[in-house]
Amino acid sequence: MSIILSKGQKIDLSKSNPGLKKAIIGLGWDTKRYDGGFDFDLDASAFMVGENGRVNSDIDFVFYNNLEHPSKSVMHTGDNRTGEGEGDDEQIIIDFEKVPESIEKIAITVTIHEAPERRQNFGQVSNAFARLVDSATEEEVLRYELTEDFSVETALVFCEIYRHNGSWKFSAVGSGFEGGLASLCRTYGLQV
């Protein structure tokens, strides 16, 4: 049975699921219909962050143009440009045993492609969620549904998976940013 988290809640993955070696982070959303004239293209990304709260190099940023970290610890399964249909719209796979020791946290984010030009924001997105699935059993371990109204934000940190005292933990973040992907990149120390 899946655990439902609210914003700000954390769960110790190592204690609650001791056999968890590889996880699928499923991300989903629906876009509200409006007369802006443009389709929505939401993009998931993973920022692999060091102890200083920043990525160590460009290779630690996994997204639609860099689908796999060289360590094979984090993999993006590909860009879904429409978000249509049921279930996960995009997925990021994390192999906990392969995550380099220099990585303390993996921030899972979603941005709206060309949001300013298309006059789009997360206020026009509904039913957004992040879920963690055990890759071995294909069972959903937890789910976090983002229920806030992000009326101006064009980028969101959905969740973070981080190390704490030798354990992997999941944090339901739900934090919004204006400025899209470029803003997130700067926040995590990448040059844009």
Results as ranks from 00 to 15, higher is better:
I3E: 10
L5H: 10
S14R: 00
L20E: 03
K21G: 08
A23N: 10
I24E: 09
G28T: 02
D30V: 07
T31W: 09
T31N: 08
K32V: 15
D41S: 05
L42G: 02
D43C: 01
M48P: 08
M48L: 11
V49L: 01
G50I: 02
G53S: 00
R54V: 07
D58L: 15
I59L: 13
F63L: 10
F63K: 03
Y64G: 05
N65D: 06
N65V: 05
S71V: 07
K72M: 12
V74H: 00
H76V: 04
T77F: 08
D79I: 03
R81G: 14
R81H: 11
G85F: 10
G85H: 12
G85V: 11
E86Y: 13
E86S: 13
I92E: 04
I92Q: 04
D95R: 05
F96P: 01
E97C: 01
E97K: 07
S102W: 03
I103M: 00
E104F: 01
A107I: 08
I108E: 06
T109A: 13
I112P: 02
P116K: 12
E117S: 15
R119C: 14
Q120Y: 04
Q120D: 10
F122G: 00
A130S: 14
L132D: 06
V133K: 01
S135T: 15
E140Y: 06
Y144I: 05
L146V: 07
T147S: 10
V152H: 11
V152F: 13
T154W: 05
V157I: 15
F158G: 10
I161C: 11
N165Y: 06
N165Q: 07
S167C: 15
S167I: 12
W168A: 04
K169L: 15
K169T: 08
S171P: 11
A172S: 04
S175G: 13
G180Q: 15
G180I: 12
L181H: 04
L181N: 05
A182R: 13
R186C: 08
R186E: 13
Q191Y: 13
